[in-house]
Simulated assay, not measured.
Amino acid sequence: MTTFPMGPALLFCPADRPERFEKAAQRADAVILDLEDAVAFEDKEQARENLAASALDPDRTIVRVNPVHSTSFRADMEALAATGYRYVMAAKAEDPGEIGRALRHVSVIALIETALGVLRAPDIAREKNVDALMWGAEDLLASLGGESSRRADGTYRPVAVQARSTVLLAAGAYGKGAIDSIYGNIEDTAGLEEEARDGAASGFAAKACIHPGQVAAVRAAYAPSEEDKAYARELLEAARGKGGVFSFRGEMIDGPLLRQAEQTLRRAGIAG
């Protein structure tokens, strides 16, 4: 799992709802103040004023701005300049050079949510000012002319699975964090936790939430069980003084498995 300084539960909050800012920040590990899809065009200027007047913790705040090539982008960045926030989520990221130029003074979470963005994910991850990649399922399917990223049983369609994997691999290849897409069914906390657990095990550093009620499920999914922590501790203790491959509980252990055990303890906040 590549590192990212926030998480595991990131909560979107519309920037036109300033009364929710503090509550969102208190309930999640980090808040994403949204100037893009969550705000109607006619409300965007007020949303920018709300952003400029806000004073959340810069280490736990991300601002999602409108796409770099949009007419709203410049105004978004002017509002951002009046704050102490330095983490910017670039919506519909597609052009790595554009991100490098237009957002060179901030730390970027590139939101990959179009077919072109997925194909260019490795080049975007390579940009020096990009700290993380996130993928967006529904915008991606819309860009393909599709109708839904999920089947009736809630599982992703193959094209969404491929995009998710591509973004994760691109982020990992360049040592950047990877953020998993939102889970749209707010009532299905069991399904959310299962998906978040898969994301954590696969290497995603965090998952985005669209409702405060989703935060607990994501945190639970990212927290290793007592059994997992005990196994990791015992495995690393057994590895002391051993070189190369060795046997532990009937399983052959080598370097990658030791690194996985170390990651389990890091997720649990325990020194390996």
Rank of each mutant, 00 (worst) to 15 (best):
R120E: 15
K207F: 13
S181R: 06
G136M: 09
A142L: 15
Y174G: 01
P212I: 09
G191M: 09
V161E: 03
S149A: 15
A190K: 14
E138P: 01
I179D: 01
A142M: 14
R219I: 06
R151K: 01
Q162Y: 15
N129C: 04
L144P: 05
A152R: 14
A152N: 13
A208I: 14
A170C: 11
A160S: 12
V161P: 03
G136W: 06
G175F: 15
L144T: 07
A200G: 13
E127F: 05
G145R: 06
A223L: 13
E193I: 01
I182D: 01
Q162A: 09
G191Q: 14
A205E: 06
R126V: 13
D123Y: 14
I210Y: 00
A217G: 11
G213N: 08
I186L: 13
S143L: 12
L133P: 00
A206M: 10
F204M: 06
D123R: 05
L141N: 06
I124P: 03
L133Y: 09
T155L: 09
D139P: 04
D131Y: 10
A160H: 04
E138S: 09
A171N: 11
P224A: 07
Q162V: 13
P212D: 05
T114L: 11
A142P: 07
Y183W: 15
Q162L: 13
A208L: 14
G154R: 03
I182M: 07
A163V: 13
L169C: 15
Q214Y: 12
L119Y: 09
V118M: 15
D180T: 12
V159L: 12
S143V: 12
A216S: 07
L140W: 00
D131T: 04
G154F: 00
L168Y: 12
F204C: 05
E147N: 11
T155S: 15
C209Q: 03
E147H: 13
D198W: 03
G175Q: 11
L140D: 00
A173W: 15
G175V: 15
A196Y: 09
G154Y: 04
G145V: 10
E127H: 05
C209H: 07
Y183E: 09
L141C: 02
A137N: 00
R219A: 04
G146S: 10
L133V: 10
G213W: 00
M134N: 01
